[in-house]
Computed example of a mutant assay.
Amino acid sequence: MNAELLVAFIAFAFVTSVTPGPNNMMLLASGVNFGIRRSLPHMFGISIGFMILVIAVGMGLGQLFEQVPMLYNVLRFAGAAYLLYLAWKIANASAPEGQNLGTKPFSFIEAAAFQWINPKAWVMAIGAITTYTPHENFELNVLLIAALFALVNCPSVGLWTAAGSLLRKWLNNPMVLRGFNISMALLLAASLYPIFADVQGVL
């Protein structure tokens, strides 16, 4: 990978990681409800889980979806259903000291596993492999792309956790926090618009 392609890829990784999506909406809510320290496993799980997803796509999983498109559709809609469930949990979260939002933040394993049903993560992974991975020494470049994406992704999503943590003191009022969590839930559900729009276009 030459320097020009490397710079372009890092820009791609940063923009796609820091822009709103399911991971960032959940981290913002986690930062508000649990703070930065308790949200760290969630953050690291996202980055490592996504790195493994990129490697899997680069090593052939993307080709499998091309051959059996139904598998990709099943994964997308399973992810959409799970995201709606998470949106419901966030909407019903209580005050930071309360015991809700699943009683605890996402664990490392839960966050890593979630990447496999996160529609935005799949789009990012496929884009990284098809657009920025040179064919010469392909397997090595896949590993490099995946590692770089994880390095860029972790601090990028961490910005959302930090923003949520900073908002904590402004959301001590249970009614205000309730409104915030409902707004985050609606934004998380809205992030599924591309899937529903795609379905409407097919129908």
Score class of each variant (00 low, 15 high):
residue 89 K to R: 15
residue 113 A to P: 04
residue 152 V to M: 10
residue 129 I to E: 06
residue 83 L to R: 00
residue 114 F to E: 00
residue 88 W to Q: 13
residue 90 I to N: 02
residue 109 I to K: 10
residue 68 V to C: 06
residue 118 N to M: 00
residue 88 W to K: 11
residue 121 A to E: 05
residue 77 F to T: 09
residue 118 N to D: 02
residue 149 F to L: 14
residue 140 L to I: 12
residue 128 A to P: 09
residue 87 A to K: 04
residue 78 A to Y: 09
residue 84 L to Q: 11
residue 99 Q to A: 09
residue 149 F to M: 15
residue 104 K to P: 00
residue 123 V to P: 08
residue 151 L to N: 07
residue 79 G to H: 06
residue 117 I to D: 03
residue 83 L to C: 13
residue 110 E to Y: 01
residue 137 N to Q: 14
residue 69 P to I: 11
residue 155 P to D: 08
residue 104 K to L: 05
residue 83 L to W: 10
residue 155 P to G: 10
residue 124 M to H: 12
residue 133 T to M: 10
residue 67 Q to T: 12
residue 82 Y to E: 00
residue 145 I to P: 05
residue 68 V to I: 12
residue 94 S to T: 14
residue 76 R to K: 14
residue 152 V to F: 05
residue 106 F to D: 02
residue 91 A to N: 06
residue 139 E to A: 03
residue 79 G to Q: 05
residue 133 T to I: 06
residue 105 P to A: 01
residue 153 N to M: 06
residue 103 T to A: 05
residue 133 T to Q: 03
residue 77 F to G: 11
residue 72 Y to V: 10
residue 112 A to T: 06
residue 153 N to Y: 04
residue 134 P to Y: 04
residue 108 F to A: 13
residue 135 H to W: 13
residue 75 L to P: 00
residue 101 L to T: 04
residue 66 E to M: 11
residue 138 F to R: 11
residue 65 F to H: 06
residue 77 F to H: 14
residue 90 I to K: 00
residue 84 L to R: 09
residue 115 Q to G: 04
residue 89 K to D: 02
residue 78 A to P: 07
residue 101 L to I: 12
residue 112 A to I: 06
